Amino acid sequence: MAVLEVHHLKKIYTTRLGGARVQALTDVNFSVEKGEYVAIMGESGSGKTTLLNILASLDRPSSGEVLLNGTRLSAIPESRLAAWRREKLGFVFQDFNLLDTFSIKDNIFLPLVLAKTPVAEMKKRLTPLAEMLGISGILEKYPYEVSGGQKQRAAVARALITKPDLILADEPTGALDSRSTDSLLAVFEEINRKGQTILMVTHSIKAASHAGRVLFIKDGTVFHQIYRGELQREAMYQKISDTLTLLTTGGNSHE
Results as ranks from 00 to 15, higher is better:
1 M>G: 09
2 A>I: 05
4 L>R: 10
5 E>G: 02
5 E>Q: 15
5 E>W: 07
6 V>R: 04
9 L>P: 03
10 K>H: 12
13 Y>A: 02
14 T>E: 05
17 L>H: 13
21 R>E: 15
23 Q>K: 12
24 A>Y: 07
29 N>G: 07
33 E>G: 15
33 E>A: 15
37 Y>T: 04
37 Y>W: 14
39 A>Y: 08
39 A>I: 06
43 E>D: 13
47 G>C: 05
51 L>C: 10
51 L>M: 11
52 L>R: 05
54 I>P: 00
55 L>I: 14
56 A>L: 11
59 D>W: 07
64 G>Q: 04
65 E>W: 05
67 L>Q: 13
67 L>P: 01
69 N>M: 00
70 G>C: 04
71 T>H: 09
76 I>L: 10
83 A>E: 15
83 A>N: 13
86 R>Y: 07
88 K>F: 07
90 G>L: 05
93 F>M: 05
94 Q>Y: 02
102 F>I: 00
102 F>E: 12
105 K>F: 07
108 I>G: 01
108 I>K: 00
111 P>D: 08
112 L>F: 09
112 L>P: 00
114 L>Y: 14
117 T>P: 01
119 V>Q: 13
120 A>V: 11
121 E>H: 05
122 M>Y: 02
125 R>N: 10
126 L>K: 03
127 T>L: 15
127 T>M: 11
128 P>W: 09
128 P>G: 07
132 M>N: 08
132 M>K: 15
136 S>Q: 15
138 I>L: 05
141 K>G: 07
143 P>S: 09
144 Y>G: 00
144 Y>L: 14
145 E>N: 11
146 V>E: 07
148 G>S: 06
152 Q>C: 02
153 R>Q: 02
153 R>D: 03
154 A>S: 12
154 A>R: 01
154 A>D: 04
156 V>I: 14
157 A>G: 05
163 K>Y: 10
164 P>V: 11
165 D>K: 09
168 L>A: 06
177 D>M: 08
179 R>I: 14
181 T>M: 01
181 T>D: 03
182 D>G: 13
183 S>T: 11
185 L>F: 02
189 E>I: 00
192 N>I: 03
192 N>E: 11
198 I>C: 06
200 M>Q: 10
201 V>G: 04
203 H>N: 03
204 S>D: 10
204 S>R: 02
205 I>M: 08
208 A>V: 02
209 S>I: 03
209 S>P: 01
209 S>K: 09
211 A>Q: 03
213 R>N: 07
215 L>G: 06
215 L>A: 11
215 L>S: 10
216 F>T: 02
217 I>H: 03
218 K>A: 12
219 D>F: 06
220 G>W: 06
220 G>K: 04
222 V>C: 08
223 F>L: 11
225 Q>F: 15
225 Q>C: 12
226 I>P: 03
226 I>K: 01
228 R>Y: 05
235 A>Y: 11
242 D>S: 12
243 T>H: 12
247 L>V: 11
247 L>P: 00
249 T>L: 05
252 N>G: 00
253 S>L: 10
255 E>V: 14
